[in-house]
Write a protein that binds this DNA or RNA. Structure first.
Lengths: 173, 173
DNA sequence: GTTGGCATGTAACCGGTTACATGATTTT
DNA sequence: AAAATCATGTAACCGGTTACATGCCAAC
């Protein structure tokens, strides 16, 4: 379900786009929140076309298909947003490593934490370099991604901060 | 893979336990980091037995099987912890809703955010009520879950804070 | 003319969820 | 005697990942 929603959301944010474009948008604007590769996107777009949520607006060179969201697609997107209570399931390999840290002796734990910190710091940097998605000169469409970006930044920062504090604690013992 | 690791970690943290016990530990100690239901756990324990990572130490009433981690299991757990760079994939329905918030008008966005805030606030409360897992009187084993709990608390707090700040912004406009 | 990016697709596999199924023991 | 909880399992399904496969067009 959520893949559909994400695709409908991106189509709304960007206007008509191809599967290829959408795959790229996943990598840039939506990457810290959801991700999907082309092998998942293309079949889904076909199903969504069959279900009337998107239409192939035009076909360009190299078999390129431009999809546009339909009114029914918009309606479904809106309904999901307003009605769907997001599932609370979390699966974080990093969190699992944090949980298991006490298994290691101090020196090893520090090494694991340093790798952890580096990974999140680089993701943070990446997010910081990401300006909210808005096509140049477009003031009509709302500022997509702005809130999610802020949320992502805060979460990344507190995660890096945790790693720093925990490293300091381990080193200080 | 990670399910195995989580099971090995729990067996290390708690000592020998049944699949049923482990399912409960998932709900309590590990819940904010990883989750798994019994239908996933039982088959996995059987596979892990076949692979020599755990053994059925004893069989109790009602077909209860007590599993213990083997040296090979410990080795594999340790290797994963030290060597495995956790994958950065994130899939957050909440984050997706945050991304899509600009689609809604102010009143609706506030409703969605309030639900969001309530959900995370209750998860935060739940985490706060969770003392780090340590069997009474046990000082031999390290303090499992302590770090992961701290990390989880920080992440929850900054998420709730984001919701509060965003609500304030929307209401102030 | 060959390399690289554009563009779409399929198939096998794996991990996780939901639902079904069964039976033993304890509590009320 | 009935209800709740303990305890283990299986099967169908679904979503996501990896790998395979193909062809077009532009730039060098």
């Amino acid at each position: 379900m959520s893949l559909r929603i994400a695709l409908l959301g991106l189509l709304t944010a960007s206007g008509p786009a191809s599967g290829y474009d959408l795959a790229k948008y996943f990598e840039t604007s939506l990457n810290h929140v959801w991700q999907a590769g082309h092998s998942q996107i293309y079949p889904e777009l076909n199903k969504m076309t069959a279900d009337g949520l998107v239409t192939v607006e035009a076909e360009g060179a190299r078999g390129r298909k431009i999809y546009a969201i339909t009114p029914e697609g918009s309606a479904q997107l809106r309904t999901w947003l307003v009605e769907h209570a997001p599932s609370g399931t979390v699966r974080s390999e990093s969190g699992l490593q944090a949980f298991l840290l006490p298994l290691l002796d101090k020196a090893e734990a520090i090494l694991v934490l340093e790798r952890f910190r580096a990974q999140y710091a680089s993701r943070l940097k990446q997010l910081e370099s990401l300006a909210p998605h808005r096509p140049a000169g477009d003031t009509a469409r709302p500022d997509f991604g702005k809130y999610a970006l802020d949320l992502g930044l805060r979460q990344m920062r507190s995660t890096v901060q945790w790693a720093d504090d925990t490293l300091a604690e381990l080193r200080g013992d």
